[in-house]
């Protein structure tokens, strides 16, 4: 069953299309990573899913319903980001017990345990927390609420590396205990790739690709060698990225070489290396094949 179905989804701000003709589906009980650069439309998309924003065009259903202002959708999802706001009169422990009233699957054991583990003072007020602490607290709510659809928008903002690691581990453990649909947006894929099953990559408000993480690992391949050595192989492939280092050239291409071709490449002295998923995403969403280096080469 698909939790989210969306086709031709568009959100317009003035003349800018934050989300542009986007079509995808997200299946039940999967952890999907929503990856994209700043301004790729991740947050806008997530807020449309959460029913906060109204779509401008296209179709979107969440649990088979239009999510905007819909109580039946709102009941089944929680949206966690660093701008979650809570009344200033409530202490952290009071916020947790209030949240418990809203979510039927609320897990008090996890909530209290995590609060204690991350050394958050129950009597502390949310607005006095540091950015990282606030993110940690919001994450606790996201985990403990055990909503059928849990959305984390850049959940690790401000967290230090150790807390981020703990968070990912907690997320995974909790997911195994109680599987549910989770969307995790981030611009850093490498930290979360072990967690994800699917990746949805956005670029400029449109879908660049949506793949299982396993396939993404083999999506592209890096070739390095002297330029004339691999000229013959790259006539009809997409070059995702290229870089010149002295007389050695490094290019990243879509990995759709046949086995025989791969063998020929190996023999021609061109080195073939896997490309990290993170880098693939960066190359796919870059505005320019040469990356930042191009800017400096030109100015020289």
């Amino acid at each position: 069953m698909n939790v989210i179905e969306c086709s031709g989804l568009t959100k317009v701000y003035g003349s800018r299309k934050a989300v542009n003709d986007l079509s995808f589906t997200i299946a039940e009980n999967k952890i999907t990573g929503l990856i994209g650069r700043n301004g790729a439309g991740k947050t806008t998309l997530l807020k449309i899913i959460a029913g906060y924003y109204r779509k401008s065009a296209g179709k979107i259903t969440v649990f088979s319903k239009n999510p905007f202002n819909n109580i039946q959708v709102a009941e089944k999802l929680i949206f966690v980001d660093d701008r979650m706001s809570f009344p200033p009169a409530l202490a952290l422990s009071e916020i947790l017990s209030s949240a418990a009233a809203f979510y039927p699957h609320w897990n008090k054991r996890i909530a209290d345990g995590l609060l204690n583990y991350f050394q958050l003072e129950p009597k502390e007020k949310h607005q006095y927390l540091s950015k990282g602490m606030a993110s940690t607290f919001n994450m606790i709510i996201g985990l403990a609420s055990r909503c059928p659809l849990t959305i984390y928008d850049e959940p690790t903002t401000g967290m230090d590396a150790a807390v981020r690691k703990d968070f990912y581990r907690a997320l995974l453990k909790d997911y195994i205990e109680q599987p549910r649909t989770i969307i995790l947006s981030s611009h850093l894929l490498n930290e979360i790739e072990d967690l994800l099953e699917d990746v949805l990559l956005l670029r400029g408000g449109s879908k660049e690709l949506q793949l299982p993480i396993a396939e993404l690992k083999h999506y592209a391949v890096g070739l390095s060698g002297r330029e004339e050595a691999f000229a013959e192989f790259i006539n009809d492939v997409d070059i995702l990225h290229q870089k010149q280092m002295g007389n050695v050239k490094y290019i990243v291409v879509r990995n759709n070489f046949s086995e025989s071709l791969q063998k020929r490449i190996g023999m021609s002295g061109v080195e073939m290396t896997p490309v990290a998923t993170d880098d693939v995403c960066v190359y796919l969403t870059a505005g320019n094949k040469g990356g930042i280096d191009d800017v400096f080469h030109r100015s020289e």
Partner: peptide, 13 residues
């Protein structure tokens, strides 16, 4: 208003 939308809410509720 935003405080409401940290948890389950619609405009009407």
């Amino acid at each position: 208003r935003n405080n409401d939308f940290s948890f389950v809410s619609t405009r009407i509720s």
